[in-house]
């Protein structure tokens, strides 16, 4: 009986005790998962702090943070959600910054299918065109802007299949269920070039920039490691890594 009570109190203590001060819990938009893992590992190595990464859709993180989720920092896939959190008083004023600007690519897993231009879109010969849901995901909205500037929205609309986020759009193309898709360059780029299949890197002038903002959340305001991780994210070392993974950086940062 006594043993059980001790065990119970131990379990309760483990649950109730706040996370150690030098631990950061980061909510990260899924499109930035791969670079963030590398950045977090480098950060842990150079500072001794620990980072726990949660990947998911920005909209879900917004809902969770609004309802008390224990995240210290938030790397969104857009600017709207960090700013909505700032307006709601759930993030540290002045802490938001653009950590990456996404690049869009028209991609097919088949070599030679997409040449360097919008030709594959105009020629037809495909049944499905995958994109992220433009109402939810900045990459989807950008894809629709590109189709708009090519005057292809109406002719292709019946062939759109929408992923809930850019990861799902990629999944639809990668499994061959859609022949073409607008995906994030970061999903198909390795060592500075498109690693598999064929793609057209859409000029960034054809859509509004996909600015992805990070913000320090109220939860992490007192956590020095959280501020340190955000600073690390803006360091030249991270910048080089972010660019090598298919993102651009805001001009003032470079």
């Amino acid at each position: 009986m006594r043993g059980r009570r001790i065990l119970l109190s131990l379990i309760l203590t483990a649950i109730v005790l706040p996370a150690r001060a030098e631990e950061v819990i980061a909510a990260v938009a899924s499109n930035f998962a791969a670079p963030m893992k590398v950045i977090a590992a480098a950060f842990e190595e150079s500072t001794g702090h620990r980072v726990r990464l949660a990947f998911g859709s920005s909209g879900k993180f917004f809902a969770q943070v609004s309802n008390g989720a224990p995240f210290d920092i938030f790397l969104s896939a857009d600017q709207a959600k960090p700013h909505a959190l700032l307006n709601a008083g759930l993030a540290e004023p002045g802490s938001a910054f653009t950590y990456a600007i996404g690049r869009l690519v028209l991609w097919s897993p088949v070599t030679g299918r997409v040449s360097d231009g919008p030709g594959a879109l105009r020629e037809g010969g495909y049944r499905k065109l995958a994109l992220a849901n433009p109402r939810l995901a900045p990459y989807g909205a950008a894809a629709v802007q590109v189709l708009g500037s090519l005057e292809l929205v109406e002719t292709t609309r019946s062939r759109w299949v929408q992923g809930e986020n850019i990861s799902q759009a990629f999944q639809f193309v990668a499994t061959g269920n859609a022949e073409l898709g607008f995906v994030a360059l970061s999903q198909v780029m390795k060592e500075g070039r498109i690693a598999r299949g064929s793609g057209w890197v859409v000029p960034s002038s054809m859509h509004r920039p996909i600015r992805q903002d990070a913000v320090l959340l109220e939860q992490g305001a007192e956590n020095p490691a959280a501020r340190a991780l955000l600073a690390f994210l803006r360091s030249p070392r991270s910048a080089a890594l972010i660019e090598s993974r298919g993102y651009q950086l805001p001009v003032s940062e470079e």
């Binding site: 909209g59 499905k128 995958a130 849901n133 299949v161 929408q162 809930e164 639809f172």
Partner: peptide, 22 residues
Amino acid sequence: GGNIPGETRVVSVQVYDYVEMM
């Protein structure tokens, strides 16, 4: 599903979209 209105966008997906769109 691919979230196509009238074809694969069912109620549960619509709710998910609304939550994601805040």
